[in-house]
Simulated scan of single mutants.
Amino acid sequence: MKLLEVKHVHKCYANTRRVSEVLHDLSFAAEEGSFTAIMGKSGSGKKHFVKLYRFFASY
């Protein structure tokens, strides 16, 4: 059974000089009882994804 499913998530930040896309078309599913690691280089959006997940999981 799927515990978490994410489809086509995008997140951007804009300032006066440019737009930074921190999440681009992120999709995955985590099964109940599984272990999931979020991996990526520095600045790739790992923390932003976790913050978004925590926000939506509180509902």
Rank of each mutant, 00 (worst) to 15 (best):
G40S: 07
A30T: 11
E31V: 06
M39Y: 02
G43F: 00
G40E: 02
E21A: 08
S44T: 10
I38D: 09
N15L: 11
E32V: 10
V22A: 12
F28H: 11
T36K: 03
A37C: 12
E31K: 08
V22N: 08
M39N: 01
V19D: 05
K41L: 03
G43W: 02
V19A: 01
A29S: 04
N15W: 13
D25H: 03
L26S: 09
I38N: 01
G43M: 01
A30P: 08
D25Y: 02
R17V: 14
H24A: 14
G43N: 03
E21D: 14
S20Q: 06
L26P: 04
I38K: 04
I38G: 12
I38S: 10
K41I: 11
A30I: 15
F35N: 04
T16D: 15
N15P: 11
R17S: 14
M39C: 01
L23V: 07
E21S: 13
I38M: 11
A30C: 14
M39S: 08
V22M: 00
F28Y: 09
A29I: 11
A14Y: 10
D25G: 03
A14N: 13
V22F: 10
R18K: 14
T16I: 12
E31G: 10
S27W: 13
G43L: 00
D25R: 00
D25L: 02
D25V: 06
T36D: 03
G40I: 00
S42K: 08
R18S: 15
S27M: 09
S44V: 05
K41T: 07
K41Y: 08
G33R: 07
A29F: 04
F28M: 01
S34R: 10
F28N: 06
K41A: 09
G40F: 09
E31S: 08
T16V: 12
L23M: 10
V19Y: 05
A37G: 13
I38R: 01
H24M: 09
S44E: 07
A14C: 10
S27Y: 12
G33H: 05
V22H: 03
S44Y: 05
E31Q: 15
S34K: 10
V19I: 14
T36F: 10
S44W: 03
N15F: 13
A30G: 15
M39R: 00
V19R: 09
F35K: 11
A37H: 06
G33E: 06
E32R: 09
A14W: 05
T16N: 09
V22G: 10
F28C: 02
H24R: 15
A14E: 15
G43Y: 00
G40Y: 04
K41N: 12
F35L: 04
R18Q: 15
R18E: 15
E32L: 04
S42P: 03
E31N: 11
H24L: 13
T36G: 02
L23F: 02
A37M: 08
G43C: 05
G43P: 01
V19G: 05
L23C: 07
F35H: 12
A30V: 15
K41M: 02
E32Y: 09
G33C: 09
A30N: 07
T16P: 07
S27N: 06
G43D: 11
V19Q: 13
L23I: 02
